[in-house]
Simulated assay, not measured.
Amino acid sequence: MNFTIEIEQEQDGRFLAEVINFPGVLAYGQTREEAIARVKALALRVLADKLEHGEIRT
Rank of each mutant, 00 (worst) to 15 (best):
L16W: 06
R32K: 15
A17Q: 12
P23W: 01
E34V: 13
P23A: 03
L44F: 11
F22R: 03
E6P: 08
E33P: 11
N21E: 15
E18I: 15
I7M: 00
A48N: 06
L44V: 11
P23C: 01
I56L: 15
I36P: 13
G13H: 07
R38Y: 12
V19Q: 07
L26N: 11
E8P: 02
L42I: 01
N21H: 10
H53Q: 11
R14K: 11
L16N: 05
I36K: 14
G13M: 07
E55G: 11
E55S: 08
E8H: 02
T58K: 07
P23I: 03
L16M: 12
K40H: 00
Q30K: 10
R57G: 13
A27E: 10
G13Q: 05
A43Q: 04
I7P: 02
E55M: 11
F15T: 01
H53G: 05
R57K: 12
E33T: 13
K50D: 10
T4Q: 02
H53K: 14
A35T: 03
Q9V: 08
L26H: 11
I36D: 05
E55W: 02
F3R: 13
G24F: 04
L47R: 04
V46A: 06
L51Q: 06
G54Y: 02
T58R: 09
L47T: 12
V46S: 08
R45T: 07
E34H: 08
E55I: 13
Y28N: 07
L26M: 13
A17S: 14
V39E: 06
K40Y: 00
D12W: 02
L16E: 02
N2M: 02
Q30H: 10
N21F: 09
A41H: 00
A48S: 08
T31H: 02
L26R: 13
I7T: 10
E55A: 14
F22P: 03
I20T: 14
L16F: 10
Y28E: 09
F15A: 01
G24T: 02
L44E: 14
G24P: 04
D49T: 09
M1L: 01
Q30S: 14
D49F: 15
I56P: 12
L16A: 05
N2A: 01
G29P: 13
E33Y: 05
D49L: 13
Q30A: 15
A41S: 07
L42V: 01
R14T: 14
R14E: 14
F15Y: 11
R14Y: 14
N2E: 02
